[in-house]
Structure formats: C-alpha cells, structure tokens
Design a binder for these strands. Structure first.
Lengths: 207, 207
DNA sequence: TCTGTTTCTGACCATATGGTCAAGACTATG
DNA sequence: CATAGTCTTGACCATATGGTCAGAAACAGA
C-alpha cells in the first residue's frame, strides 16, 4: 500500500506531496471527470512524475476516493448549520448564501460532485441514500415544522432544498455558460446572483 | 468521408443505422462524457461492430458533434416560444413547465449538455457566446419590458432565466441524487416539482 | 441470374494509459 | 559523516482505445 494511505502524513514531505497531489487531482478530475482524467495529467499539474504519484497513492481510484470523501463532508456542512430559529426565512436565506459562497469559492469541488452525480454516482450512491438522505430528511422536517407553525408559506420542503442546491451550484457547475451569456457583465455575477436568490427565496417563503 | 455525414441518409439502411448509432451514442456520451466513452461501448449499445460505426461516422468526435448540433437546436426551442403576452407570469411559468417536461422526457440530452458545460464547453463555446447569448439577451429584454410596465415584480432577467434553467435541469442532471433523497416518494417527483416550481416562480414574479 | 454498389467485419496498427520495479538520489538522525 | 530509511525516476509491461483496410457478404436494379 502507498505510504500516504496507510500512515496519514507522517513526515513533512508526505503531508506536502499528498496535498499537492490532491490539489492537482481535484483540478483535473473536476474538469475532465474520472474516466476522462489521466494520472499523467495529474502528475503534470502537480509537477511530479507519474511513478511518484503512485508512490503516495494506490492508484487513480484511490486519489479520487479521497477527494470524494473530503468533498462529502464539506458538502453537508452548510446544511448542517440550518437550525431552528425565530426567523426561519432568514435562516433559510443564510443557508442559500452559504451555498452560493461555496459555489464561488470552491467551484472545483462542486464540479467534482456534479460529475459524479451525472455519471450515476457509482462511487457515492451509498452516501446519497445514507447520510445525505438522513440529513436532508431531518432539515425537511424542520422546514415542515416552520410551515405548520405558520412561520413561512407552505412549500414542499424537499423540493425547496433541491431549488436551493440547483440555483446556487449552477454558478459553479455552469459557470462557462453563465459567463458566456452575461458577457462583459459577468464580473459581478456573484453579487447580483446573491441579491437575486435572496429576493427569490424570500418571495417563496413569504406568507 | 463516411457515408452518413456527407449524404444525409440517402438509403433506408443509412437512415436507420445512423439513427441507431446516434441513439446509442447519446446513451453512452450522456452517461460517461466524451472522453469517458469509447466507440466500443457505443457499438455494443447499438448492436453493431466498431468498424461498422466508423463506416457511418468519421470518428468519435463526429458522432459527438452531430449530437451536440441537434441538442442545441432542441435546447433553444422552449425559450424561443417565450413571447410577449398580457399575462407575463403565465408566459414565464409556461416556459418553466416546458423546460421541466424536457428534463423529464429528454434527460439524456440534458446530461449531454451538462457534461459539455462542466468540461468547459470546448466544443460549443461559440454557440454559447453566439446564438444562446443573443436569444437570452432578447428574452431578458422582453422580461425587462414587463418589469418596466409594472406587470411583474422587478427581478434581474438574466438571473431569473438562470434560476429557471438550473431548477428544471436539476431533475434530469441530478436525478440520481433526487431519487436517493426522496426515497420511496420519488415516484411522483415530477408532478410535485411542477407544482413547487410553479408556486415558486409565481411568488417571485408577483408584485 | 448477373453485376455493380453498398454494407459489414476480422485482423491489424499506433498510440495512450494504468501500473510496476529495480536502482539511484535524498534526508534525517545518531 | 555514515547509514538506515524515505523519496524519486527511467525503463518497462499489459491492456485499452481510436482508427484503418482488404476483402467478404448482402443488396438492388437490369
């Protein structure tokens, strides 16, 4: 087994190189998808030789696997922060903003996820029906409570969450399209998107 | 040059086989992306031999190219139908429904498009900044007119369109995730989505 | 049925790709 | 500064993949 996989970054070099490789791999995988990426591409991007990459990781799948693991944790975080509050509309809009910030600051992670889902989620199907479903159901129940208490307008909680995911992730996954369509006005796309989404979800939730 | 490319389906066999190949290719490309797909996969899916595929098409790129061409036309159609009307809210919601129907009835096309955009749209970048931008700008202007006339609430037209694209296409591109999260309730996902999106965009546009 | 054309395929080629390995280079520590 | 352990790489292998080609099989019209 490769060093890095077993001993989690024992030496300084191991920690550095491992991160270097993972960063390069994220760049490549998020752009070309798993099958479309080659170890050589990752090696070039990382400024290392191919055998050197394979000294730290057991293979292409192993690198991809580590990236997906990290991703899923990061992905659930913003939703985790959604809790009960006196101002549910604000609580939900805050979540929208957190997701939009992630699309802006971590577009590669978003695209890695999108690629995986598009291909039928072969490697993360269990997490989708497991931890993701559990967490989503939990938050959907919370939203339903708010509706029952008359604090927000009646909406299907699950589909509201889907709308939040899709509208925010769109600015990462479809960035090329967004920029192409906006042309020279694409500079402030995230500010305008924030304003627009804020308005939109407030309107939906308003009684 | 391959037969099918030059003479547009002259004989019966040419028309049939060409369609057969394109259908198989759509299935494969939409699932694995361009680089992740092989001619052998397409051949197997189509029930033909690899050389036979290459008898009808000049290569992998050529097949993909034809699919993208057809796709783009189909993709712009629903937006094209958005025209001036006494009831702009209804007009926009109708567009949302048309897009949602496309996500339901042509998920492979949606995923093919998503794959292409995700990878930076190397093959359709010109169309994005060309015909897509032109059409989108045109419809954005129309929406702005409606706003100026006070017929709908003020929204950023471009970002409204992005929201429509993302929320509807989500049900095709992220179907695995949607089904995983909804679990046994995923059967009626499109009906509930239609209801939800209808409500949502009505709320956004309401003055 | 004959014949020119279209359709199809097994065998083949060049290159790309994931992965291995032995040996050399480097590094930390006594 | 010696040396045990860590790190790196050129050369190599097996397989996958895009694509070619000569000739066989099927077909359509006379």
């Amino acid at each position: 087994m490769a060093r890095a996989a077993s001993t989690k970054g024992r030496t300084r070099i191991q920690r550095e190189k491992t991160e270097q490789i993972l960063d390069a791999a994220l760049e490549v995988f998020s752009t070309y998808g798993f099958r479309g990426s080659t170890i050589d591409q990752i090696a070039t991007e990382a400024g290392l030789s191919k055998p050197n990459i394979l000294y730290y990781f057991d293979g292409k799948e192993a690198i991809h696997g580590v990236l997906l693991d990290r991703l899923l944790h990061k992905w659930l975080e913003p939703l985790n922060q959604l809790t009960d509050s006196d101002d549910p509309t604000r609580e939900i809009c805050d979540y929208v903003m957190r997701k939009l910030e992630m699309a802006r600051d971590f577009p590669r992670e978003s695209r890695l996820f999108a690629n995986e889902i598009l291909q039928g989620a072969p490697r993360i199907h269990d997490q989708l029906t497991g931890s993701l479903k559990t967490l989503t159901d939990e938050k959907a129940t919370l939203i339903q409570h708010w509706i029952d208490k008359g604090k927000i307008a009646p909406v299907d909680p699950h589909h509201l969450i889907f709308s939040i995911w899709s509208t925010t992730q769109h600015y990462a996954d479809f960035d090329v399209q967004v920029q192409s369509v906006l042309g020279d006005k694409s500079e402030q796309r995230f500010e305008i998107a924030a304003d627009h989404l804020n308005k939109m979800f407030r309107a939906v939730l308003k009684k």
